[in-house]
Design a protein around this nucleic acid. Structure first.
Length: 580
RNA sequence: GGGGACGUAGUUCAGUUGGUUAGAACGCUGCCCUGUCACGGCAGAGGCCGCGGGUUCGAGUCCCGUCGUCCCCGCCA
């Protein structure tokens, strides 16, 4: 193929089929770069060899589809192009067939400069012809293949689960699909195959996995699409450690398939509490230093002078290698601390130094501050806000500390981490009730079961839930599940569901739990995110062939659209004209 | 739901304090060119300045609204 010819192929007769990437018409000689999925090869048309053929080549335009037969030839020394993999050779054309013409494209896949996202998505087929996009598609293929091969080798079975399923109004908004046979009834597209995979465990499947599309009707981000792909897996009779091993082994295989050797388990572990205390985040990016509580460095009168309420933590955030900040740069740090936190930011360490030299000496020691490090202090109980600031500072000064600029081809650039012991419940102000922090099928710690049943101190109940985190991004999330019907019922009650509501929503599942459910647990990993990180991409759209915009629109096919009155009638649906 | 950035030629962008005929590069068309590889040279075509309204003698430029793309907060069990 076009990208594969090398010096050793000289003399061979080949036929290349592909697109005209670029043509260079010198009046006499015409050079045409032919492109296919694998790369480019230069084809030369010489009028002295074949004037008819040369004339035909003169009519070629960008993105025409052609088949060229010819002889692979070494280029002369002065014509070598070390800048391209096929730069040692060229194909001397002997025959040319025009397989198809092309309108002048709105942009050329040959250009390095990208058009706007809008144009790329509208003409996605042209955008995908771009070599970097072809590379990403291939990477995605290799990642998925490695997952399947590795898991299959470990005795996992890939099993498909339905897309047309039932709405479970816990969690994200569902995408609904109206039923024609039962007007007024709807299927929901799965947010994840959670209950099906648990039922597969009940069914004795033992080790299950699936590369599966999931759907969530929530607002989008650079790393969130309304439909996305998970590597979903579940095991019977596992300990948390067994799940970790399975995932670590698989990720090692995936990274190797992507050309990165040396990723190895076991990954470091950290509890949720530690993560929040040290990083103010449940997905710590450990490529930058942890925060340190330096309150003890300040005497009570210092805290009073600084107007810091007694008992609040004073968190030191250190970003290495930033150097001196200008007054203006310092002023720009203030808005990075979320305003609603009630925390206060001290961004001018120098000034504090003048007022409290001894205290600041201790701060420097506690936070291991070195020359050239940026040091800011955050006073307040909101660790999460401080963590947000820490990440924002890390991003802002990424060019200076360089902790994020590791080579994506080296294992050392990937900081994997397990975060464990998540809280079971979170209080929702909006709904005025406890919500499942992970999902309601997660088993609480055995030692916290009493609290669950008594519905006491639900906020401090720990779950057997865990996330796998990579460079500050959540790659996957899982748990050891509840396998006892009475425990599951107790959790539903703690979530404010009456037994009747629980039966209505999850009756089929509570029923299934009665028939000899084995202990089980698993995890789901975001395939798109994994490929994105391995591709060094900033957005999921780079690794999803046909993604949607932030308003969940497919610009190429123009979806969603309204449908005909007849279609609606058949479904028993009437659309209300929005009058607001 | 909220905040921010952007919207001008096919594409990427520039456009001064509101001023007369809206520019550049790439692409496109034609001509010239035998070792280019982002080929080069000459000439040319190409505009609903996102859309609607307002202010003004006059709006690409100012104001209001609206639509779209991107980023962030909320949301995403």
């Amino acid at each position: 193929m076009c990208g594969e010819l090398r010096g050793g192929d000289a003399g061979a007769h080949v036929t290349l089929m592909g697109w005209v990437n670029r043509r260079r018409d010198l009046g006499g000689l015409i050079f045409v770069d032919v492109r296919d999925r694998t790369g480019l090869t230069q084809v030369v048309f010489d009028p002295e060899r074949d004037s008819m053929l040369h004339a035909k080549a003169g009519g070629l335009r960008n993105e025409f589809v052609i088949a060229v037969a010819g002889k692979v030839a070494h280029r002369e020394a002065k014509a070598l192009n070390p800048g391209m993999p096929t730069g040692e050779i060229e194909v001397v054309a002997e025959d040319l067939r025009l397989l198809n013409t092309s309108d002048t494209p709105p942009f050329s896949p040959a250009d390095a400069a990208l058009p706007t996202e809008e144009t790329r998505l509208q003409y996605r087929y042209l955008d995908l012809r771009r070599q970097s996009m072809q590379r990403n598609l291939e990477l995605r293929h290799r990642v998925a293949l490695a997952m399947r091969q590795h898991l299959a080798s470990q005795g996992f079975l890939e099993v498909e689960t339905p897309f047309l399923t039932r709405s479970t109004p816990e969690g994200a908004r569902d995408y609904l699909v109206p039923s024609r046979i039962y007007p007024g009834s709807f299927y929901a597209l799965p947010q994840s195959p959670q209950l099906f995979k648990q039922i597969l465990m009940i069914a004795g499947t033992d080790k299950y996995f699936q590369i599966v599309r999931c759907f969530r009707d929530e607002d989008l981000r650079a790393d969130r699409q309304p439909e996305f792909t998970q590597l979903d897996l579940e095991m019977s009779f596992p300990t948390q450690e067994r799940v970790f091993e399975a995932v670590e082994g698989m990720l090692q295989a995936v990274w190797e398939a992507a050309g990165v050797a040396g990723v190895k388990g076991p990954f470091p572990r950290m509890t949720y509490d530690e993560a929040m205390r040290l990083y103010g985040s449940d997905k710590p990016d450990r490529r930058l230093p942890a925060m340190a509580d330096v309150r003890e460095a300040f005497a009570p009168e210092h805290l009073q002078t600084l107007n810091i309420a007694a008992g609040l933590p004073v968190l030191a955030i250190r970003i290495p290698g930033v150097g001196e900040l200008s007054r203006r740069e310092r002023d720009e740090l203030k808005p990075l601390l979320p305003a609603r936190s009630g925390s206060r930011l001290f961004e001018d360490a120098k000034r504090l130094e003048k007022s409290f030299p001894e205290a600041m000496r201790q701060v420097r020691e506690l936070a291991a501050v070195a020359e050239g490090d940026l040091l800011v202090l955050v006073a307040g109980a909101d660790f999460k806000a401080a963590g947000t600031l820490r990440v924002a500072l890390g991003e802002r000064f990424a060019a200076r500390h360089k902790a994020f600029s590791g080579d994506i081809r080296h294992a050392a650039s990937y900081d994997f981490l397990w975060v464990t012991d998540f809280p079971m419940f979170e209080w929702s102000e909006e709904d005025g009730r406890w919500m499942a922090a992970h999902h309601p099928f997660t088993s609480p710690h055995e030692s916290d079961m009493e609290a669950v049943i008594a519905q006491r101190a639900l906020g401090s109940v720990r779950a057997n839930a865990y996330d796998v985190v990579l460079n500050g991004m959540e790659l996957g999330s899982g748990s050891i599940r509840i396998h006892r019907q009475d425990v599951q019922a107790a959790i539903f009650r703690a979530l404010g569901m009456t037994d009747e509501e629980a039966r209505n929503r999850f009756g089929f599942f509570l029923e299934a739990l009665r028939y000899g459910t084995p202990p089980h647990g698993g995890i789901a990993l975001g395939l798109d995110r994994i490929v994105m990180l391995l591709a060094g991409a900033e957005s999921l759209r780079e690794v999803i062939p046909f993604p949607k915009t932030t308003k969940a629109v497919d610009l190429m096919v123009d979806a969603p659209t309204s449908v005909s009155e007849a279609q609606l009638k058949e479904l028993g649906i009437q659309v209300r004209k929005s009058s607001t």
